[in-house]
Design a protein around this nucleic acid. Structure first.
Length: 353
DNA sequence: AATTTCCCCAACCGCGAAGTT
DNA sequence: TAACTTCGCGGTTGGGGAAAT
């Protein structure tokens, strides 16, 4: 009921628009406006359905549409809004002047989402997930830089010999810990309906997936309760740190800021034109980032997408950047961070083996 | 240089909400 | 109030260009 007739039924044209069609549509709308999309194509002399005309106008021909790559600020806004609104692309687009919902949706699916997945960030919940993390890249990165964590040393064995059951256990424990924290967030953010929706879905889906792992975990936990307890403590520290970040706070424990700050030796000089080789320390400090961000809404995702030291890219007249280099730099940065955080976890796993 | 594979994005599809008769 | 129309949204697709082989 209520569905507009399909283009096929009326023998209307489909597929890419020609310049002539664009001209007809633009001319007509400039003269008459775009009130009734159903009758518009006939009046404009187009062999298209109204739906197709509306889409072409709103996504491409509209004069106020901004073209070109997304800026840092735009990408940061998208990630922040998505963490609150979920896949409400039109709502997100409403806060990004000149960008269409379709454009934002495409950009999310082709760039941001993939990047978050590669970095081990769940693109739905915006939470770090060990099971999504590309561990091989971390391992190779670590081995590449001998001054940093040596996985083989940590585990005492070759990385390929890690028991997959242990990795599943680690994943599940972290998911479980995260669910608890998400439930807390759920109560603390009841005014954000879309966020709630995604968190609930996430929990439900994870419950199904975790049933599969439960029996194996139970066996391990029955035989080594002390190790599991220590393991959970470490994961608790890990997730609590991230929760503090997401809630605009520094952790209130006795840990110093340095405990949360990875200090890459060479990353991100790409962004900071003023960086020099002798002082390339990049401090991931929420307080600094919140100053950088005008809206003062710090988030974990925001940190991942925005270097705190200098928001000025190399390109001169805008904040547009090179996507491929950008991806690599952000991944490297996040990889450093997660590598830093999982050190204790891997220690425990090593002992457990 | 030719072929294959990968990736991006414009456009389509199906559905639900809101409005109209 | 039910039937119908129109609009808008989110998910998905496939054509075409770029990159890899």
């Amino acid at each position: 009921m209520g569905r507009a007739p399909c283009c096929d039924k009326n023998g209307l044209k489909k597929g890419p628009w020609t310049p002539e069609e664009d001209l007809k549509l633009t001319d007509y709308i400039q003269k008459h406006g775009y009130g009734n999309w159903r009758t518009l194509p006939k009046n404009a002399g187009l062999q298209r359905c109204g739906k197709s005309c509306r889409l072409r106008w709103t996504n491409y021909l509209r004069p106020d549409i901004k073209r070109g790559r997304f800026s840092f600020e735009e990408e940061e806004t998208i990630i922040q809004l998505h963490s609150i609104l979920g896949n409400k692309w039109s709502a997100i687009a409403g806060r990004l002047p000149g960008r269409t919902d379709n454009e934002i949706k495409n950009y999310w699916n082709t760039h941001i989402r993939k990047r978050l997945l590669r970095m081990g960030i769940d693109p739905v919940t915006h939470s770090p997930r060990l099971d999504l993390l590309d561990l091989s890249s971390i391992i190779s990165s670590s081995l590449y830089n001998s001054s940093q964590i040596n996985i083989s040393r940590l585990l005492g064995v070759h990385p390929t010999l890690v028991n997959p059951e242990l990795m599943r256990l680690a994943t599940s424990l972290m998911s479980s810990q995260r669910d608890q924290n998400q439930n807390q967030n759920y109560h603390a953010h009841q005014n954000v309906q879309h966020h709630q929706h995604h968190q609930i879905n996430q929990i439900c889906n994870q419950q199904e997936a975790e049933q599969f792992q439960y029996q194996q975990q139970q066996q391990i936990m029955d035989h080594h309760p002390e190790v599991v307890e220590q393991f959970q403590t470490n994961f608790s520290n890990f997730t609590n740190q991230n929760d503090h970040w997401q809630s605009n706070e520094m952790p209130s424990s006795n840990l110093t800021q340095e405990d949360y700050v990875p200090i890459p030796t060479s990353h991100y000089s790409y962004y900071g034109g003023s960086c020099n080789n002798s002082d390339q320390t990049v401090v991931m400090d929420p307080s600094i980032s919140s100053v950088t961000n005008s809206n003062n809404n710090f988030s974990f995702a925001s940190v991942l997408s925005t270097p705190s030291s200098s928001p000025t890219p190399l390109h001169s007249n805008s904040t547009t950047y090179n996507i491929s280099t950008e991806d690599h730099e952000i991944e490297s940065y996040c990889s450093e961070m997660l590598k830093f955080e999982i050190q204790d976890i891997l220690d425990d796993v090593g002992e457990f083996m």
